[in-house]
């Protein structure tokens, strides 16, 4: 049975992710920040709701940056970052001043600055334009599936790392991938069947 860990770093909506994974029938799921648990896992989910610097502060406080580094970059364990969990995969963010991220995917997190009469945060259901073949979207029944977004900052990165975009006046990067490192700006745990399917795809890709 695959062991899945959901990283608890204080500000995430960990139970929402946990409930979704449990619903899919996986029994070996743990919400944790314990080193042993993370090293013995097969896949890692990095959830997130909150401000970037608060998230990074908590990650370093719990020494998760070093533990995750070894698991993800050296042991090549698959990891899925959600929302802020995706943003901290970047080099850093402008939210409340410049703060450094984990730096695993080149690019920076910037504030959404929209010219038209569009409200920020970008809140609600938006559909995706799948850009690069990613195993995250293999089982969607719609080619432009809807997901739930709720964010004021977005990840700006090279096209080759972007697995999907969404349109909100500008083209926003909706998900990223760099080898075994996956990130989604939207909330699959809150995107009904499409979200559950995305978790299923991610976990199916775990050997």
């Amino acid at each position: 049975m695959k062991k899945i860990v959901i990283i608890d770093y204080g500000v995430g909506n960990v139970f929402s992710v946990y409930n979704a994974i449990k619903y899919l029938g996986y029994s070996n799921v743990k919400i944790t920040y314990d080193e042993k648990d993370i090293f013995s896992s097969d896949a890692i989910i990095l959830p997130g709701v909150g401000a970037f610097d608060e998230a990074m502060k908590n990650i370093t406080k719990r020494k998760l940056d070093k533990i995750l580094h070894e698991n993800v970059l050296i042991n090549k364990k698959p990891i899925l970052g959600v929302c802020v969990g995706m943003q901290i995969l970047s080099e850093g963010s402008d939210e409340n001043g410049w703060h450094k991220g984990l730096g695993w995917i080149p690019g920076k997190v910037k504030k959404l600055e929209l010219t038209q009469n569009l409200a920020v945060p970008h809140v609600g259901w938006n559909n995706l334009e799948i850009a690069n073949k990613s195993n995250l979207y293999l089982n969607q029944s719609n080619s432009n599936p809807h997901f739930y977004f709720d964010h004021s900052y977005y990840f700006e990165t090279e096209d080759k790392y972007v697995s999907s975009y969404c349109d909100y006046g500008i083209k926003i990067c909706a998900s990223v991938q760099n080898d075994n490192i996956y990130g989604v700006q939207f909330h699959p745990e809150k995107s009904q069947n499409n979200g559950l399917k995305l978790f299923r795809s991610f976990l199916n890709s775990v050997k």
Binding site: G10, V11, G12, N13, V14, F15, S16, N19, A20, Y23, V49, G50, Y148, D150, H187, E189, K190, S191, Q192, N193, G195, L196
Partner: peptide, 24 residues
Amino acid sequence: CFLPLTIGGGIKNIDQIKKLMKYG
């Protein structure tokens, strides 16, 4: 509840919010 959930009522401090976010 696999869709966005907003919770209100009786919220006065940060710890309550942390707990609510953690619970879903």
